[in-house]
Structure formats: C-alpha cells, structure tokens
C-alpha cells in the first residue's frame, strides 16, 4: 500500500532462536524425507532417522527457549483449527512417532508415512511464515516452495554424506539432491523477484545479497562437487560430498536466517489520505 507514514522497521519479536527452528527443523525433516525417498535399508538410513529427529528437536528446543512462558509450552497444542504453529507441533509429534516406528519396523507403508509427515512438518513451517500477515517478506506465498525445496535439498545433502560414510552410495540421493537444489534456486529467484522490490533499504539488500551465495555456492558449486563425488573413489568422494553438503546446507541456512531476522520488515503504518486542514 502506498501512502503517508513512518517507514516500516525490522520486527524484534523473533530472533535467531526462531530462525533456528526453520534452519534445523527444515534440515531435519528434509533428511527424513530424503531417507524415505532415496536411502535403501541399512546403516545409513538407520542413522539418518535419529539424526533427522535430533535436528527437528534442536529447532523446537530453540523456539522453546524463546517463548515467554516455557512451562506452558504444551498450550501450543490448543489451536489446531487455525494455527499453523499448533499444526507444526502435531506434525512434529507424529513425525517423531512414525520415525521411531520406521526405525524399528521398516516397510513400504512406513516409508510413505515417513515421507508424508516429514513433508507435512516442513509445510507447516512454511505456512507459519505465510500466515504472518504483519511481515510482508513472510506472508508472500512464494516463500512456501522455497522453504520446502531447501528442506529437501539440505536433507538430500546429508543423506548423500551418510550414504558415503557407510559405503552405500545412493544414485537416487544424488538425483534427488540435484533436483532439490535446482528447484530451490528457481524458487529463491522467484521469491526474491516478488518480495525484494517491496522492501527497499537494508532488508532488500540483505535478500539480494543471499542470491549469489545460494546460486554459486549453494547450487552450482554444490552440484559440481556432488558430480565429482559420484565419479570418484570413496575416500575422495566423501570429502567432496562433505564440501557439497556444507555448501548446500550453509546457503540454505543463510537464506532462512536472512528471511526471518534480516528481511523481516513489519507492515509499518500508512495513511491513504491526509487530514484536511482549515475551513472548507
């Protein structure tokens, strides 16, 4: 809305702890999703499930540290009817249950349930941002595909590393990673093109500054390293995969932190009309 009024300012309510929920929760749910889609039964998959859960739990713990009344945390479950934060909590609980069950009793239906709840958790995270009407950079619908794609890209990167660590390279994981980071780059470009012009100033510059990091390091460099890792012997491949994962995950985390803490201008105030002065 154009109008008269003081310029918007960065929201101060959600800091790095809230950002950490998106950072770790996205990577954790992405890892579980990638494991369900691309890792065969075996030690790599067995490790990926608890690691994914640990990341999700770490993110939720960070949020718990931010809330004003931590002893009332269970009240978060009271509004599934309209609140995406409540839905995220329920999705998290379901994800924990299904992941533990899949760890001990793997099977086709378990894989489907794993993938479904991991995707649901990441979706809830994206919708938490989307429902924040007071923050233009968050309420933009195009943030949703980015949050989903980066979760899958980060998860697939971790899945590749785990698969190589246990000498069970997964071509499916390589393919999933390539698809996810390319989709992420496209989603980011579309999101920034839509949001950045509305922000202006430092928040706009912060978003724009993420673009080369996400494209050159998080996408192209990561893809090149993964391509080499797929072609080289294991001990080289492991190092290269670690580098690719660091690049892809670091870029994704940087982007999410920027969205939550640095591009989060509030709506501000704006008057469409100024008061008429004097007699008329």
């Amino acid at each position: 809305m154009s109008g008269f009024g003081p310029k918007p300012w960065i929201q101060q309510h959600w800091d790095w702890r809230a950002a950490a929920n998106f950072v770790f929760g996205g990577a954790g749910s992405g890892l579980i999703l990638a494991a369900a889609l691309a890792l065969p039964l075996g030690p790599a998959r067995a490790v990926s499930l608890p690691l994914g859960l640990a990341l999700v739990a770490l993110g939720l713990t960070c949020v718990w540290l931010e809330i004003g009344r931590p002893l009332r945390a269970l009240h978060v479950l009271l509004n599934a009817r309209t609140s995406w934060m409540t839905r995220e909590a329920f999705a998290g609980i379901a994800l924990f249950g299904v992941t533990v069950a899949a760890f001990f009793r793997p099977g086709d239906w378990m894989e489907i349930a794993l993938g479904f709840f991991a995707l649901l958790f990441a979706w809830c995270q994206a919708m938490i941002l989307r429902a924040s009407k007071g923050i233009p950079a968050w309420r933009e619908p195009k943030v949703i595909p980015f949050i989903l794609a980066t979760a899958l890209g980060e998860g697939a990167a971790l899945a590749i590393v785990l698969a190589l660590a246990y000498n069970m390279p997964s071509p499916l994981a390589y393919g999933l990673f390539a698809l996810a980071v390319l989709a992420r780059a496209a989603a980011w470009m579309v999101y920034v093109a839509s949001v950045a012009p509305k922000l202006g100033g430092a928040p706009q510059a912060a978003l724009v500054a993420v673009t080369p990091v996400l494209l050159w390091i998080g996408t192209f460099a990561a893809l090149a390293l993964v391509a080499l890792a797929a072609a080289l012997p294991r001990h080289f491949a492991m190092l290269l995969a670690l580098g690719a994962a660091a690049a892809a995950i670091g870029a994704g985390w940087h982007a999410k932190r920027t969205i939550v803490t640095r591009a989060s201008l509030n709506q501000g105030f704006a008057l469409p009309n100024l008061p008429t002065r004097g007699a008329r």
Partner: peptide, 21 residues
C-alpha cells in the same frame, strides 16, 4: 493461556502487541 511465543505480534499488521519478559 498465552505462552508468549509472539506469533501474534508478527501476525499483527498494526504493531499493536507487546511482550515484556
């Protein structure tokens, strides 16, 4: 009932909500 998550504060387009710790 409030847990002080401040989700309402970022959802409000009018900067009307406060949280004092």
């Amino acid at each position: 009932l409030c847990i002080g998550c401040a989700y309402c504060a970022v959802a409000c387009p009018y900067q009307a909500r406060y949280k004092t710790d």
